[in-house]
């Protein structure tokens, strides 16, 4: 909305609606994320952030329109949307615990492999995998089972699995939840590096993290876009202060409009 120019490969959501049994979790959201943006999606619990990402990635049926680089996504099965270059993570990192870091990345890199290639053994490390290992800083742990990684490193591995897929749009659901201060800072740096040649959308509750790393912010509230712009714009918006920053600045997640509860984010 703020960027009317037609981006090369940007995400354009128009009038998106998602309802579950009469409860409308996403109620006519329209937003555009330009290429190379590091967009943070914030909002109180139940605002519809995760549901929005679910709709974009084909997990829940929705009406309206979601276009990525001019291609309509709604109505396509999950794995086809992925093949268009859209990847996501979940709130709890899901990596394959019984496989090594290298195997995890290799599988992520291989969605386009032919059956014949699948039947052969992996020899060496594919270039894309080596680069991703470097980016996420897990090169020296590539032989370890993913199940033995600490929480923060699992999130990085999961981000690495998106990188080797050569995704152009990353949708990350609370990537720094449960991380230590240092891990947050490292993750933020990682996101900035990734966003240099990709589009990144981050759902986040951590306001400090958002203030430090966001290029732009969209605030959702009760399934609608409440405000959009730079971090400074959004923070200065009185509507945001009212519903989101709440009665006192010390309670960032206080949700006065609790009536919209139900869509667990």
């Amino acid at each position: 909305m703020t960027t009317p120019d037609e981006p090369l490969k940007g995400l354009r959501i128009t009038d998106l609606r998602v309802s579950f049994d009469g409860f409308t979790a996403v109620d006519g959201v329209s937003l555009t994320v330009g290429p190379g943006d590091l967009r943070f999606l914030i909002g109180p619990n139940g605002a519809g952030k995760t549901t929005l990402v679910d709709a974009v990635t084909g997990l829940v049926p929705a009406t309206g329109s979601v276009e990525f680089g001019g291609t309509e996504l709604l109505g396509r099965p999950v794995h086809r949307i992925v093949r268009l270059g859209i990847g996501r993570t979940f709130q709890t990192a899901t990596v394959f615990e019984n496989l090594t870091v290298l195997q995890n990345l290799d599988i992520a890199a291989g969605a386009g492999r032919s059956p014949a290639a699948l039947l052969r053994r992996r020899k060496g490390v594919p270039d894309a995998v080596a680069r991703a290992l470097e980016t996420i800083g897990l090169t020296d742990r590539r032989g370890d089972l993913a199940g033995t990684l600490a929480h923060g490193r699992r999130q990085w591995l999961e981000i690495g699995m998106l990188l080797v897929q050569d995704v152009q749009l990353l949708l990350l659901d609370e990537p720094v939840a449960g991380m230590s201060h240092d891990e947050r800072a490292e993750t933020g740096g990682l996101l900035r590096r990734i966003a240099e040649d990709r589009t990144v959308v981050v759902i986040e509750h951590d306001m400090d993290f958002m203030r430090t790393f966001a290029s732009s912010v969209t605030v959702l509230h009760a399934g609608r876009v409440l405000s959009e712009g730079s971090v400074a714009d959004v923070q200065a918006d009185p509507r945001v202060q009212e519903v989101y920053l709440g009665h006192s600045p010390g309670e960032p997640v206080a949700a006065p409009a609790g009536g919209s509860a139900g869509g667990e984010d």
């Binding site: 990635t57 999950v78 794995h79 992925v82 093949r83 990847g87 996501r88 899901t94 990596v95 394959f96 615990e97 019984n98 496989l99 195997q103 995890n104 290799d106 599988i107 992520a108 291989g110 969605a111 386009g112 492999r113 290639a117 699948l118 039947l119 052969r120 053994r121 992996r122 699995m161 897929q165």
Partner: peptide, 22 residues
């Protein structure tokens, strides 16, 4: 083979594999 690794991945987390484009 790579298929064998993929099969273990499907066993452990089918949803995740779907999100890798398989």
């Amino acid at each position: 083979s790579r298929y064998g690794e993929l099969l273990v991945a499907v066993r452990d987390s089918e949803e995740r594999v779907r999100f890798l484009g398989y």
